[in-house]
Design a protein around this nucleic acid. Structure first.
Lengths: 245, 245
DNA sequence: CGTCCTATTGACTTTCGTCAACCAATGTGG
DNA sequence: CCACATTGGTTGACGAAAGTCAATAGGACG
């Protein structure tokens, strides 16, 4: 199913363009790079809803997702949680700053991750500058993705945020069945709400709004059929004025 | 005043901790690295309110801030602008993805930037792996800062956002006069509002809210005296319930 | 068939955006 | 030097959006 340890710079663009750019050769590990990394890493298997590390812990390891989905979250003193990212195969997480993790990592569903001592990765990188370039690329991509989320959270309404989310996840092969246009989400509504920076109830209302516009159809609580991907993209980009009931 | 081309991983932490970590030796350019970079870059001088590049343009150059402040912004199709970051000395901006800029860069005030062809930076990095590590570090730091903003935009009220902003800018030596506790902002209210993801009016109300709590004092429209930095930090972190008038 | 848990809906409150008016600081022309 | 216009910032009033709390519906599972 998955092909071992991989680092992939996801293209999370405006969904109209699901081209194969992400498979650009310079952004993939060579066979031996992959083997070296994998030899220095431990493969861990988790069930859903498990904590990999907690916010504030001392950080010794970096993780590479092999399979499943990990939620990277931060909980402030006000007890409200913000999910920063859902890490999927090809992503890495657990980059320390000042020696500790700034956020927590929990499995959304059953997942497999490679764990590597941070120091070890440093050593490997020192010997292989090409790997550094690849990492740099991945970081740049993650940064851009984070910026896209800043825009979403900063200027978009709750319906627009939901549309962004659906489009983002529709580009993940593990979630989206292209032929039947079924989007199967491994996460529950609270996770979704905390990702979108709104309350679960508001998210539910956003869902019915999109349903009423015939853009999505509810197969079951965790599965939607995407009826009009272009329409979703218009919602995402469009201003919040047009209220076609 | 400033010391040429520098790449600095800012520490933007919770303000209580303005330690000197940012000056860690492994995060600074060596004398010759600095000279090499500077020799391959052009120093440009701008006045305030000028555009350096626009969203969507082909991207040939990377920029390093020497002096002043640059706003990195993104304008969606809905005509609403989100400011992603204010770049200050030690920051870089203009990293391309797929060959074009994903956001615009304009000077907030009079500024000096070093401009370097992107390809050139690649060549220089290829010859100096230590520089790659430094860049990687900088990117990791920027990513973390972006994540902090996601949290701010996702779960904080407009007053909390303003408090975050004030604390963030109070850690910039170019803006904050430590002895008199004067915070001098080069930006106007619209910029501030677009950074905080709210309307200028809401920002004005947030300012008066903090003024009423005696946490800040208005010296003039663009200058505040920070009366209680710890109180600001409590507001920033605290839940939004306590409404002490 | 009932129980438990999640998701949705409804009613109400709070926050925030919007439009308009107002104020203050700065600049201009007489 | 002063009337006056202009710009940027603040305040007020109102409406729209989203949060909150409570009630209800819908599945999964025993």
């Amino acid at each position: 199913l998955t092909s071992g340890l991989e680092i992939r710079a996801r293209h999370f663009n405006g969904a109209t363009e699901n081209s194969e750019k992400s498979a650009a050769p310079e952004n993939l590990l060579s066979r031996d790079q992959q083997q070296i990394l994998q030899r220095n890493a431990t493969l861990l298997t988790y069930r859903g809803g498990n904590m990999i590390f907690a916010q504030g812990e001392d950080a010794y390891f970096v993780y590479f997702v092999r399979d499943g989905m990990i939620r990277i979250a931060q909980t402030g003193d006000n007890e409200r949680r913000q999910i920063l990212n859902f890490s999927v195969p090809g992503d890495m997480f657990g980059i320390p700053l000042d020696g500790s993790y700034g956020n927590s990592a929990e499995t959304v569903c059953a997942s497999q991750v490679y764990r590597m001592p941070w120091r070890r990765l440093h050593e490997i990188m020192a010997e292989d500058p090409r790997l550094q370039v690849l990492l740099l690329n991945k970081f740049a991509c993650d940064l851009r993705q984070a910026q896209a989320r800043i825009v979403t959270l900063g200027v978009h309404s709750s319906v627009q945020r939901l549309a962004s989310f659906l489009l983002e996840f529709a580009s993940l092969p593990s979630c989206f069945d292209e032929t039947r246009r079924h989007l199967k989400l491994p996460l529950n509504r609270s996770d979704l709400a905390d990702y979108l920076g709104s309350a679960p109830e508001s998210t539910a209302r956003a869902i019915t709004a999109l349903r009423n516009k015939r853009l999505i159809r509810r197969v079951n609580a965790r599965t939607f059929e995407i009826l009009d991907i272009q329409g979703l993209d218009e919602i995402r980009r469009g201003n919040r004025k047009r209220q076609t009931s």
